[in-house]
Amino acid sequence: MIFHKYANPNRFLKLATTIQPWAAGATGLFFVTGLYFALLASPGDYQQGETVRIMYVHVPAAWMAMFCYTAMAMAAAVGLIWKHPVADLAARSTAPIGACFTFLALFTGSLWGKPMWGTWWVWDARLTSVLILFFLYLGYMALANAFDDPARGSKAAAILALVGAVNVPVIKFSVDWWNTLHQPASVVKIGGPAIHSSMLVPLILMALAFKAYYIWVLLIRIRGEINAGKIRALRLRQVHGGPPPIAARPSQGVN
């Protein structure tokens, strides 16, 4: 399997160095074209007017919120089952990015809701689920950083990510149920906007920009985590004088 090859942090670092400039370039390219289409080259919606432009960042951010949690849970599972060190770091590095996208989905949703619904916050089923997802990210990050040994934190947080992943459908279902029970009459329920092809272009471009951004920042963060692990191993070695763990052994073999 391909990912076993990259269980070696040094081999992964080499791969990351190759991919990173491409991810950075793709992020820039998609952002510029995406923003151009979202803000200049697309018409306003006949129903929602210009506020439809908020959708071009809101919907991709909400997609990324879900995508990052799935990626995090999968990386956590790989880390737990195959003891894959890079997967552990990938899960840990995904969490802040996912939390940022979740926050953006909530924030832009609120900004969209004000002109649409007349209030900043509606206990709408989708918004509520995203809010709970945000709490799940916060819990994961708090647990991952609550231990003196970051490796131990990653492992505990990996279990939490999997428990959360099992719970996400249950939470989604219960929130939908709760929402149909408490449908306030005053709130105008707008259906998902009918996607017009002129909307599809900026939407997809922004989604691609977010995804490329995710890969780019993820690689930066994993690189930092790998090197931080090496530093910890070196410092431990200075204290105890034992042989370095495999992960910390430099590829060029200074010893």
Binding site: I132, F135, A142, G164, S174, W178
Partner: peptide
């Protein structure tokens, strides 16, 4: 920390 981890998972039980 415990409350941050657990309370979101309690929501379905509370709702039903």
């Amino acid at each position: 920390l415990l409350s941050l981890l657990i309370l979101p998972l309690y929501i379905p039980v509370l709702i039903f």
